[in-house]
């Protein structure tokens, strides 16, 4: 085997070994969703991350999961992960206590097109916990506000009690050149906001096709309808970016679990320009 191949194999081995992090805080967002703040366990700081990237988090003795980073990319002291408790490993993760050890690999993957979006309007469309991977992009835009034009955040969730980051969304919505609209599928009488699917919010937004970059993350079926709606409003497919999700194992493009057409979600994604994946998007067998 050539030396270069041996070196690559060795690197691969290292990349599969998690570094140890400590849980600094567990914050309850909703009845089933929590945000974990992780700090480095040793003296070495965490590597930086780019909005949209994820880490492989290992709950010792339980399992490993890909979780998107949901915090401010310029907070170098800790990394935030927003996790919905839906299975054995996520339940174990959100049940962590401050001081507990968690294994961490990464950050991995592609990122939101924040450079491409400079000087343009940014439209963020999120559904459910899909707001978590988009929050670092919003933080980044807020920190570099002069580099971007209007920011519009459209967020849909199942019910008012499923909305995450509510206070932060309200705060952002009060800022100039920023429009934040939330909607829920099922709303009671106490909910004063919008009721209906997230695509219903487009009528309240002044969209400038060819001068807007859209970043979309949520259930795939929601993203399909969002894309149809945006294309109908004249948005070019190349200006639509989406975050895709598939069952990941290695997180570095070796195992093939997350293959999506010619791409691996973990290595080539999770963020893709729509025109690069449109041939596979929405296909049943993928």
């Amino acid at each position: 085997m050539p030396v270069a191949e041996l070196e690559r194999e060795q690197t691969t081995g290292n990349e599969m070994t998690p570094a140890m992090a400590r849980v600094a805080q567990v914050r309850k967002e909703t009845y089933d969703t929590f945000t974990l703040a992780l700090e480095p366990s040793g003296g070495e700081p965490f590597p930086g991350f780019t909005p949209g990237q994820f880490s492989m988090l290992y709950v010792y003795g339980n399992g490993e999961l890909p979780i998107s980073i949901s915090g401010d990319p310029e907070d170098h002291a800790r990394l935030l992960y927003t996790v919905r408790s839906v299975g054995k490993t996520t339940q174990a993760l959100v049940s962590s206590q401050p001081g507990d050890a968690v294994g961490m690999r990464g950050p991995y993957g592609s990122h939101w097109p924040l450079k491409v979006a400079r000087g343009k309007d940014v439209l963020i469309v999120a559904g459910g916990i899909g707001l978590a991977p988009l929050r670092p992009a919003i933080h980044y835009i807020m920190r570099h506000r002069a580099d971007y034009n209007r920011l519009v955040v459209l967020y849909g969730a199942r019910s008012p009690r499923d909305l995450i980051f509510r206070k932060q969304l309200e705060d952002w919505g009060r800022l100039p050149d920023t429009q934040v609209l939330s909607t829920v599928d099922y709303g009671g009488l106490s909910w004063r906001g919008h009721v209906g699917v997230v695509t219903g919010l487009f009528r309240l937004v002044r969209l400038q096709p060819f001068h807007t970059v859209a970043m979309i993350c949520g259930p795939e079926i929601m993203m399909r309808y969002v894309i149809w709606e945006l294309e109908a409003r004249g948005m070019p497919p190349g200006d639509l970016y989406l975050s895709l999700e598939r069952n990941m194992k290695c997180g570095i493009g070796f195992c093939g679990h997350c293959q999506y057409g010619p791409n691996f979600i973990c290595k080539d994604g999770p963020i893709f320009p729509y025109h690069e994946v449109r041939s596979w998007f929405g296909r049943y067998e993928l």
Binding site: G128, R158, Y186, G196, V197, G200, I221
Partner: peptide, 14 residues
């Protein structure tokens, strides 16, 4: 829109 709401697409089961 009603069909999408009925899909309950944000539910973990979906």
């Amino acid at each position: 829109s009603t069909r999408l709401q009925l899909l309950d697409m944000y539910s973990p089961v979906s």
